[in-house]
Design a protein around this nucleic acid. Structure first.
Lengths: 341, 341
DNA sequence: CGCTGGACGGAGAGCGCTCTCCTAGGTGTA
DNA sequence: TACACCTAGGAGAGCGCTCTCCGTCCAGCG
């Protein structure tokens, strides 16, 4: 091998006294290689310090060993998605990594906030830079899922798409989670219950609201007042203010995510309400925000890490079996009892 | 071109009636191509729907158009770094993306928590999967920077390495930032001032503590009590408890990051202290935590996004000019006045 | 003892691209 | 007119790997 250049298969083959093909067989774990020769090859690899060149390999295998992790938000291109500030995102990444890492696959981070960046994502995938895409979309009318399907790129979504698109996804049973919250509030004897929901153009927000209302109706509470927020701290605080304005006597609130619940907690304190004494509060997500507030937040656990890992699994299925029909996997939520309800 | 396969340079060349080389010239913007032929080639690209294959290209150029974004934390491999839960991380990613995206480069996310995963990162880079590494390291004794230097991989760190390693990095002037906080507390007339510092094996935490103590000394306060935290909400709350225990009359606190400040705020409220009335509080980072608490936190702005972008710039310099000597770029912090001080 | 078949390993053809030659033709100068 | 010089574009050699095809060798069987 030439000075300075890194060793190639050829070099290893020469050192081991075999052909390139045999070295390749050993590296890729293909049978029909004499153990003694295998050992010689391994020795040669060690002495040469050989590392396979991924570009050359993917040129022929048509696999890259990378998947795109696409965050499709509502920010703009210059200042990527506020989703990054959401502790939820960290959990998604964590779950994805825990599944992909043992398989030697790495996620390539991409943002798709505008038409231009969406086109970029699609062409990136078409160039064969990644074998497929994991998509976390935060807004309802996102055209990217449909574009990926059209381009024939294997892809899996986190959360059901707002528009029907033939694509695989994972989700949590939002209705069941909201029902868990309702059951708990009723169990605590709360009679004047309200809810702070998320933006109603997002399917998850709709489902949490509907699930909560239905469950309360089953308990005999036909009408549940609600106030809409935007899944942020501030919007939760404001929604709580509005609720207290209209219903000063309320004694229980289900808030559609923890960040808003944190804001709601502050508004309640500001208005002299004790939690859970005067008002019981239940959040949703069990994110780090739930433990970064006082009292600690009772919340609905969303198995985000498991869901993210499942996304990885589904994606690999689609990568290895291109024709495969879309699947969805729905996870069960759980009530996490802490101090606020 | 064969059915189903995606078009190659060859196909485009055939359609345009030129050679492969000419199409390549047009795509890579090389002069010496007749405008009429350029146009014909562009037409052919459009009609065939050609997208260059990145693997083939990087096989010959020895460039991938990807960089590794390595998070080297103190977690373990199964549950990646808690750094993900820190809003700080989102800002780093955001800054990196804003620099890389216009240049068509994408970050590949990697975690290095153990010896095994560190080895994986190094070999990944040696395989030529990425042109270099951006490293965000959260613990002091991280051997990865040294390993990357040894492997000859272009790399840039966020924050000065704890051990001296010949590697480029960006950092903020922690001492100057802490001094800003000291000046503000003195300006407010606070006389009994303390500080909650970060883990003292982290250079940044040391510098913030030393900078604060020095500045207070310049104002005539020779002794500043401190309590050590771990940069988390809970540790901030506990450190504040300890401080109140030993110094119940304190009237000002500088907390080495916003997350701990949030915890400190809670402890103060719990002990009946008003902020900023009884105790003025100043954080550090200006992260999203600073606006997710009440009162809004006065803090020291860390230009994380700009710093992250600079990391990208430095890395590309090293990628294009392999022999280049390590550089460091230090940013100036700023006081962000809100309600807490 | 000759033939078949399985196990092993080498040869060599690409994968799709870039880039270095090299040729052909046009322009400028004496 | 002759020669040098420049420019446009083609030919073709790889980049490092995988994988199909094929030859060789040896055990087993009739």
């Amino acid at each position: 091998m030439k000075q300075g250049a890194s060793p190639t298969l050829e070099d290893v083959a020469r050192v081991a006294g075999v052909s390139r093909a045999t070295v390749s067989r050993v590296i890729n774990g293909i049978r029909n290689v004499d153990p003694a020769i295998q050992e010689a090859v391994r020795q040669a690899i060690a002495t040469t310090g050989y590392v396979p060149n991924r570009a050359a390999r993917s040129l022929v295998t048509r696999r890259t060993g990378a998947v795109a992790l696409v965050l499709s938000g509502a920010g703009d291109d210059s200042a990527p998605s506020p989703i990054l500030a959401d502790p939820f995102f960290g959990r998604v990444v964590s779950g994805i990594i825990s599944f992909l890492r043992p398989r030697g696959i790495h996620p390539v981070l991409m943002f798709a906030e505008s038409d231009a960046s969406r086109a970029e994502v699609v062409s990136y995938l078409r160039q064969g830079d990644a074998d497929g895409a994991l998509l976390v979309s935060t807004h309802a009318a996102d055209p990217l899922p449909a574009q990926l399907v059209e381009a024939g790129v294997p892809a899996v979504l986190f959360a059901r798409p707002a528009r029907p698109v033939p694509i695989s996804y994972v989700d949590v049973d939002h209705r069941a989670g909201a029902a868990l919250a309702a059951d708990r509030l009723v169990e605590l004897g709360r009679r004047r219950v309200a809810t702070i929901c998320g933006p109603l153009d997002v399917p998850a927000a709709q489902a949490r609201l509907a699930g909560f209302q239905d469950a309360m109706a089953r308990h005999g509470h036909a009408f549940v007042p609600y106030s809409e927020g935007g899944f942020t701290y501030d919007s939760g605080e404001q929604a709580m203010e509005r609720l207290l304005d209209g219903h000063p006597d309320l004694d229980g609130v289900f808030v559609a995510n923890d960040l808003m619940a944190q804001g709601a907690l502050h508004a309640l304190r500001h208005h002299g309400r004790s939690v859970p004494g005067d008002v019981a509060v239940i959040g949703f997500d069990d994110s780090s925000a739930a433990t970064a507030c006082r009292p600690l937040l009772t919340t609905i656990r969303h198995p985000v890490e498991d869901m993210a890992a499942e996304m990885g699994r589904l994606l690999l299925e689609h990568v290895h079996e291109p024709g495969r029909a879309p699947t969805s996997v729905i996870f069960e939520p759980a009530l996490i009892m802490r101090a606020s309800a």
